[in-house]
Design a protein around this nucleic acid. Structure first.
Lengths: 357, 357
DNA sequence: CCACGGAGCTAAATTGATTCAGCATCGCCG
DNA sequence: CGGCGATGCTGAATCAATTTAGCTCCGTGG
């Protein structure tokens, strides 16, 4: 009976077929610099490897080298989230470029299990760990062996791990500026989230986002109507926009906390028989897919999850220094903001709006 | 100089500390049946392992055992998709329950690279491979070693691999039935996709979905207005709904191809000054997150990605037979369908609709 | 008194790759 | 002609686990 049925070829098989030693084969296939093997030997070895369809066994390599060429990605809810899976795309493609694969795990929202997941990754001897968060906040990360770097994507840690965050302050400033530059001076903001801002454990980005917003309005001499909200979702966007419209019927623009809120804002505006952007301009943050579904398209500051994922991998793989990085949020201009250069005046009397007919 | 600085403890370390052999330690820690080691020895070994914080090296285990306790998940676009990341959640939790971890890779839409990704997974000696598809279609899957099972989630293969698909025919029937049961007899359907139905390489589910729809309408004696479309997205939903409303002003319900189409349908209905569900009922398929954002909430048949992912893992891990499985699509009833039991009559003359005031 | 069997344990082989140390052979220089 | 260095290659150790084969006691039955 043949002994080599269906067994995957090993280095030894290649050595035997090529008539060389395992050492030689290893050196040739790895292009080891400094090895002085003849061109002829190299040719024979490569031919043999090709013929057998030889693939190195990564388990054996890991065992010997102590590196696994594998990264661990642990998320709280990312994989489940409508928009943040872009992060996975970014990190996957960066990892692939460096010949690494990625293991995934999810805590399903329970921060306590993050410790277990990290341990599981370390048990598997990953070369580095990424922790991806759905909402950008500060979390507690257990200590890890010094040789396993950890970077947090869309968050920070209480113990100061390297991190990748969106540059929210600049984005907040840019979006408010977009509105004031378009001539809007009476604008509603829905909404600040005092609880989230109260502690980095709730959010590390909502604060900067609103700092930027406030700064830009102040620079333009605009005093916006900022409404506090307990959470950001379409339902809250809807009800608060209705309130805003009642309280300040003369506003010309609404800046929403994120695209989910803006979704509700669109609904409320339609409910009142108003039009975006003719009557009310709308802008927001995140650039979820649904921002492009809106009619007219929603102008929003994009959360660059893909770049963040990619950047984190580059940090892990030593391509850029480990540290705290801020990724710019590109402004995606669609059609939800109207310029008020001149037509702003005719807005004083609402009864003549029939002039459109 | 100490030799054991910062090195992770190995089986040999546990053996040394407990005064036993590596063999004994291995047998005890693995609860090997048939080994006749004393209770006292077991206690000492476990204590030593605990004290050192011993964790087995999976690379060494894989090398020896040929199993990696790792599953490979390859997708075309899943990880990037707003709704299908539920599949990852399902498969992750099932894998975790069986002590397996999951490697991910993505072809980024290029089917040609699927072969490379499979090879990469096989190189890593995964115990099984999942191929997840964004749109349910038939793909070509290269041959794999007999000891590595492959199952396709949300799709099928030309070579008849085990697969997990949603039960679209039943769902199509159920949704149409929901409408006819509510008394709707003039209903628009947006839209069938002839190109997609033309070949399993485009879709293996749109056909059954529409078969079910047609069957249910036929059973109820209803002859729906079915509109063909080239694709399913909000934009098409919007323009086609406008056309549908023009062509058949007397319809009382619209069944949309999926939630994206329904999004556009809502927009078009609002544009015409009509209301969901008072004037037009709407139903669709998928249950994306945005279905719950709609106002009123959209009644839709849920694509059970999480169950599909979980089921595929159970097949890979031998918990259920490898084969073709159909997963039921639950009907998610929200508020977009109006019962027409009696009030249907007053619809004949539109001019008296002012009676609502 | 010796053989035998079972209990309790261990030495060594094995898995597949990398790498250190070193062995021939050859040409060249003194 | 002897020694030296370069060239081209290989044997064996190593990584950390599992597992086969077998060793040493000890008690018991013949």
């Amino acid at each position: 009976m043949p002994k080599n049925v269906d067994r995957r070829p090993t280095l030894a098989d290649v050595a035997a077929l090529s008539g060389m030693s395992k050492t030689a084969v290893s050196m040739i296939l790895n292009d080891r610099p400094g090895s002085r093997l003849s061109a002829d030997a190299a040719r024979r070895v490569r031919a043999a490897a090709e013929e057998l369809g030889y693939r190195p066994n990564p388990a054996a390599q890991s065992l010997r080298l102590g590196r696994t060429k594998t990264l661990g990605f642990i998320s709280d809810q990312i994989t489940v989230t409508r928009y943040a899976s872009e992060m996975i795309r970014g990190l996957l493609s960066a990892a692939k470029e460096h010949g690494h694969t990625v293991l995934i795990a999810e805590t399903e929202g329970d921060d306590a299990t993050i410790s277990d997941e990290i341990q599981a990754m370390i048990d598997r001897r990953v070369d580095g760990i990424l922790i991806g968060l759905l909402g950008a906040r500060m979390i507690e990360v257990p200590e890890t062996p010094a040789d396993v770097p950890v970077v947090i994507v869309n968050g920070t840690s209480t113990t100061g791990h390297p991190s990748v965050l969106p540059d929210e302050r600049t984005a907040g400033h840019a979006m408010a500026r977009l509105l004031t530059d378009a001539g809007h001076r009476r604008v509603g903001v829905i909404g600040n989230n005092p609880r989230a801002v109260s502690s980095p454990l709730h959010s590390v980005t909502i604060g900067p986002r609103f700092d930027g917003i406030r700064a830009a309005f102040a620079e333009a001499g605009v005093d916006p109507f900022i409404m506090d909200v307990p959470d950001w979702n379409p339902d809250i966007g809807y009800t608060r926009t209705l309130q805003m419209l009642d309280a300040h019927p003369d506003i010309t623009a609404i800046l929403a906390g994120n695209d989910g809120v803006a979704f509700g804002t669109y609904q409320a505006i339609a409910e009142r028989g108003l039009r975006v952007p003719d009557d009310i301009s709308v802008a927001s943050f995140d650039d979820e897919e649904l921002a492009s579904f809106q009619r007219p398209g929603l102008t929003t500051a994009r959360l660059p999850y893909d770049v963040m994922g990619r950047t984190a991998v580059e940090m892990l793989l030593g391509e850029r220094p480990l540290g705290a990085v801020l990724i710019p949020m590109p402004v995606i201009e669609r059609a939800s903001i109207r310029g008020l250069d001149r037509p702003a005046e005719i807005h004083s009397d609402e009864s003549i709006s029939s002039s459109e007919a």
